Computed example of a mutant assay.
Amino acid sequence: MNILLTGGAGFIGRWVAKRLLEDGHHIWILDDLSNGREVNLAEFREHSGLKQFIQGTILDEQLLSNLFDEHRFEICYHLGASINVQDSIDDPRTTFNNDTVGTFNILEQCRKYHTKVVFMSTCMVYDRCTDVEGITEQHPIKPASPYAGAKIGAENMVLSYYYAYRLPTVVIRPFNTYGPFQKTGGEGGVLAIFIKNKLSGKDLAIYGDGTQTRDLLYVEDCARFVVESGYSDRVDGHIVNAGLGRDITMNDLAKLIVGDESRIKHVEHIHPQSEIAKLLCNYKKAKQLLNWEPQISLEEGIRRTEAWIQDSNLI
């Protein structure tokens, strides 16, 4: 198939690109490199399936129109977005434009050619978990940050095109994803930052009291979920979660990674108003509709990520 992947130079996008190329598709990657890095795609440069990398923005309607008119994509995996919660609090306009207006621009092009839309949302749209079975897709949402609010707005537009135009669309909500190629600096994920600090002899800093929990999904499991959502019409018109189905407190995660509790420090939270106290995924719907479930344990995922950070000389 001819496939457009927005945000394909990003952390998750890079793994989605890898899987699509392995499956034999022709892919075009559109990324403005505000979060992604072209080096993430270095190993695919000579791959015959990677037709073009375009540095550009989903806010450029003419660029999108030209791409769709020329290549008539069968699927658009739409991962391109502003992803930083604190940035959305500091500058909500940019996040709204990228995540909501940009998604509208994608939808309008997909409507022209009946292109399936796989929209990458986030578990950050949910209110805290109160059920021992975890968060299902029916769980209450809470836009605790402009990032979450922009994603909810985009989700509703994506689903509206399914109902109004019968456009095949699906909203996917992966939980906290980690693994190789994730940034290890301030914009990276907590697990990658913890591992880098461990390896470089620094303390591990935890915001607040560290009792907040996260459900951590290994990136290759996430990419498999993303790709399969595009292949199956069983999820069209649906919202679907993906996670490990196991949560862990930040205190326990830090202990698991560094071992030495004297290297764990607690610091004042930079955005306590947008903190979600407990995140635990219930992925039964993904298992039912896609036959998807995670394959990599947290311990194995940490081992693989630590090995990659060491091998990449990121310490």
Results as ranks from 00 to 15, higher is better:
residue 9 A to L: 12
residue 18 K to D: 15
residue 21 L to Y: 07
residue 24 G to K: 10
residue 24 G to S: 06
residue 32 D to C: 12
residue 35 N to K: 11
residue 35 N to H: 15
residue 39 V to K: 15
residue 42 A to D: 15
residue 52 Q to L: 13
residue 54 I to L: 12
residue 57 T to N: 14
residue 58 I to L: 13
residue 63 L to N: 03
residue 67 L to T: 04
residue 72 R to F: 13
residue 73 F to Y: 08
residue 76 C to W: 01
residue 82 S to Y: 02
residue 93 R to N: 14
residue 96 F to K: 02
residue 96 F to Y: 14
residue 98 N to Y: 11
residue 101 V to C: 11
residue 115 T to V: 06
residue 121 S to D: 02
residue 125 V to K: 07
residue 128 R to N: 08
residue 132 V to I: 07
residue 141 I to E: 12
residue 148 A to D: 01
residue 150 A to H: 01
residue 151 K to G: 04
residue 151 K to I: 13
residue 154 A to H: 08
residue 156 N to R: 05
residue 172 I to V: 10
residue 172 I to K: 03
residue 172 I to N: 09
residue 176 N to L: 01
residue 179 G to K: 10
residue 181 F to A: 13
residue 183 K to D: 14
residue 183 K to W: 14
residue 189 G to L: 01
residue 196 K to E: 10
residue 213 T to V: 05
residue 214 R to P: 09
residue 217 L to N: 06
residue 218 Y to K: 03
residue 220 E to F: 00
residue 222 C to M: 10
residue 223 A to K: 07
residue 235 V to N: 10
residue 239 I to N: 04
residue 243 G to V: 03
residue 255 K to C: 07
residue 264 I to W: 07
residue 267 V to D: 00
residue 269 H to G: 09
residue 277 A to N: 11
residue 285 K to C: 10
residue 295 Q to T: 03
residue 296 I to L: 04
residue 300 E to T: 06
residue 304 R to E: 01
residue 310 Q to P: 00
residue 311 D to E: 14
residue 315 I to C: 15
